[in-house]
Computed example of a mutant assay.
Amino acid sequence: MSDVYWHRARRLWSVREAGRVVAHVPAIALSGVAFRASEAGRLRCLRTGCRDVHAWAVGSVCEVSRTGDAVRIRYRIETCGFRVGDRVITKAARVWFEADGAA
């Protein structure tokens, strides 16, 4: 299982395994994805204005092309959780992390 999160300074996706960053990639796909977000970390970032890794996706790296019915997932520090529209989501079958930072 790998953790994936957007590295704001590098403008790449960071891939973490067993707590260590093993790669920075422009794009990656995961299957069996669970979304993790620390509410305490989000509130700390809002309070201090400093950004840190407090939200990420966990899944298995896979080689699969994006399908036409894919929907955009968003994470915004102003609201809790990963979202599709107004709905909070906690898991997905597959997620494509694109080179422009979109998922």
Rank of each mutant, 00 (worst) to 15 (best):
Y75T: 07
A70Q: 05
G59F: 00
Y75W: 11
A55V: 05
S60P: 07
E63K: 07
I77F: 04
V71D: 09
C62T: 09
I73P: 12
I73D: 07
E78T: 15
V64N: 07
E78A: 15
R76K: 11
V58E: 12
I77V: 14
T79P: 11
V58L: 10
Y75F: 15
S60E: 15
V61A: 07
C80S: 14
R72F: 09
D52L: 07
S65N: 08
A57F: 03
D52P: 13
T67L: 10
A70P: 08
E78L: 14
V53Q: 00
A55G: 04
V61P: 03
S60K: 06
R66M: 11
R51P: 09
E63I: 06
C80F: 14
C50E: 12
C50D: 13
C62D: 06
V71Q: 12
A55P: 01
V61W: 01
R51L: 14
A57L: 02
G68P: 04
S65M: 05
R72M: 11
V64F: 07
V58G: 05
R51G: 13
C80M: 15
I73L: 10
E63N: 15
G59T: 00
R74W: 09
V58D: 08
V61G: 01
R72N: 08
I73A: 03
V64H: 08
C50F: 14
R72C: 13
V64W: 03
A55N: 03
V58R: 11
V71I: 15
R74L: 11
V64E: 11
T79L: 12
C80G: 15
